[in-house]
Write a protein that binds this DNA or RNA. Structure first.
Lengths: 190, 190
DNA sequence: CCCTTTATTGAGTAATCACTCAAATATATA
DNA sequence: TATATATTTGAGTGATTACTCAATAAAGGG
């Protein structure tokens, strides 16, 4: 008996993610969202509840897509080569709405206000970091890198490098690809 | 004949810088500024003209103070050791309003809106980068590091690492000091 | 003390913010 | 087709935004 919504919820979340990713939390108004999602306020709030709730969903989509991209890379290239390739992949996606990581942008914007979304972002970052650690462990077991280093420490440093790379990639006049190459090269020396 | 202002302009700018640094551009309202600077709207606009103009001054102060801190370090420690110490110094300042770099926060928040302040931030970052390059050049001339690498490339990578470090230092559950040590250690291997 | 010049005050501006809700509309089942 | 249930609509909410301006206060030179 009910009436079905005439939109694809997942697609709406993806579009919201792109907006939030590019413009940030405060930089994205409800008018922006209404026009991007083609929804009137009533429908918007019936579907998502609040701007924050939609941002939360957008963050989750961003994070799980990122994990999936890394996993697929690992499946085709193996642990070390996927870690070496990932930096280039991440800044090379020209259809992405921004070069910088949405999780770090969220963290930097909302951490000071103790906003729950900042905690969400940090959790997703920790998730990613532990996936990096897994890959380092696998690379050690495969003999691709020496096992003198702690995989957790390698992952911590690798993620920090990635975050720096992606901030740098946002800047004008900075050759981010060169930085990505150097990150990959330094992994080869482990 | 004129009446003198009863505030220290430089001190006001420093307080504004701290607010902006911590809370960001959109996250800092005029009410926040009025209460932190103890100024009514009229005085505020007579003194600074606009929120953006004050942010601009705050950015300049942030950048020149950063350069000064690096220069002093270089004077006492020499080029290589100052580059090695700088990461720890930058994340170790507990009285600072934030760990992350205000220039990168500004860039990430305002770049998408093509806000002039984002360009300002990038210019300050370029300034800092060229100072890093100078130090790398000096370190090469002093024989502290090999001269096989291009100082500009070293500076580019170094700044990227610093930006990543400072984002990481903002996160809960991340041992940023360990990352800073690794950055310093990797410089020793040049 | 007067007068000129500047600083300070704080109520008030229009615009925008996230969000609400009653009415209208569409759909699937009975 | 009638009814129950859900979605969509869009004008409108109060709060907050950055900012203005006429009135008042203060300070130094004559």
């Amino acid at each position: 008996m009910p009436r079905k919504p005439n939109y694809d919820r997942n697609d709406l979340i993806a579009r919201a993610r792109d907006l939030f990713w590019q413009q940030g939390w405060a930089g994205t108004s409800l008018k922006d969202l209404e026009s991007a999602l083609q929804m009137k306020p009533g429908s918007f709030y019936a579907a998502f509840g609040s701007k924050d709730a939609l941002y939360r969903l957008a963050l989750e989509k961003y994070a799980s897509d990122g994990l999936a991209r890394l996993d697929e890379l690992a499946r085709t290239l193996g642990p070390l080569k996927s870690l070496q390739r990932f930096p280039q992949v991440v800044i090379g996606n020209d259809s992405a709405p921004a070069k910088a990581c949405m999780l770090s942008k969220t963290l930097l914007e909302l951490q000071a206000q103790n906003h729950p979304l900042a905690q969400d972002a940090n959790l997703h970052l920790l998730n990613m970091e532990s996936r990096f650690a897994d890959l380092f462990t696998q690379a050690q077991k495969a003999g691709e890198i020496s096992d003198t280093h702690d995989p957790a420490a390698l992952a911590r440093r690798y993620q920090s490098d990635l975050l720096g790379l992606r901030v740098s990639a946002e800047r004008a006049g900075v050759d981010a690809k060169a930085i990505a190459d150097e990150i990959a090269e330094s992994l080869a020396r482990l």
